Amino acid sequence: MKFADFHPGQVIHAGPYVVTPEESVAFATAYDPQWFHTDAQAAQDGSFGGLIASGWHTCAIAMRLVVDAALHDSESFASPGLKYVRWPHPVRPGDALRLQAHVHAVRRSESRPELGILEWRWQLFNQDGTQVLELEATSMFRLPMALRQLL
């Protein structure tokens, strides 16, 4: 999608993305090697009753879905950060995750008129409709010259 295609109130859907046990453990082993992400035997006796995916893996999956659904071939080039990130429920190997991205604001940067700013909330839900991720992100876009003059 191009920056001009986004509008407040818009909801973008993507998925499902199925989390495999191998992927979940491999990500955690490389980036978040806590026992409840990497050791199935120990995790069975833990608070979650089995392996759970790293929250950072969950964020990476959300990013993949957002790129596939909205940012691929766009003018997006960076993000200054997130307002917040929450993992209300764990992701388990085998979960099928779906994205809902809610566009809150679309505007031109006041200090840099060549930039478009997109503020949006991303949510991931598993196959049961349980929310497993919520975050608010800001994305920056380089505006084409023609669009700079219109906004």
Rank of each mutant, 00 (worst) to 15 (best):
G15E: 06
G15K: 01
G15R: 00
P16Q: 06
V18Q: 14
V19P: 01
E22Y: 03
V25A: 03
A26H: 09
F27M: 07
F27L: 09
F27I: 03
F27V: 00
T29Y: 02
T29R: 15
T29V: 08
Y31F: 14
Y31H: 14
D32P: 03
D32C: 10
D32K: 04
D32G: 03
F36D: 07
T38A: 09
T38G: 08
A40D: 14
A43L: 11
Q44D: 10
Q44P: 00
D45C: 07
G46T: 06
G46F: 06
I52T: 08
G55K: 07
W56E: 15
H57K: 12
T58K: 02
C59A: 15
C59E: 15
A60S: 14
M63G: 11
D68T: 07
A69S: 12
A70H: 01
L71G: 03
H72Q: 15
D73P: 00
D73I: 00
S76V: 04
F77N: 14
F77Y: 15
S79W: 02
L82Y: 08
K83T: 13
K83M: 12
K83H: 12
Y84K: 14
V85P: 00
R86M: 11
R86L: 11
H89G: 08
P90D: 09
R92L: 13
R92G: 09
P93H: 02
P93D: 14
G94H: 11
D95E: 12
A96D: 11
L97R: 04
R98V: 04
L99E: 08
Q100F: 04
Q100L: 11
Q100P: 01
Q100S: 13
H102T: 09
V106C: 09
R108T: 02
R108W: 04
S109K: 08
S111T: 09
L118W: 08
W120R: 13
W122E: 15
W122S: 15
Q123H: 07
L124N: 07
N126Y: 00
V132F: 02
L133T: 04
L135D: 13
L135K: 10
S139N: 10
F141D: 02
R142D: 14
P144D: 00
P144V: 01
Q149D: 14
L150C: 05
L151K: 05
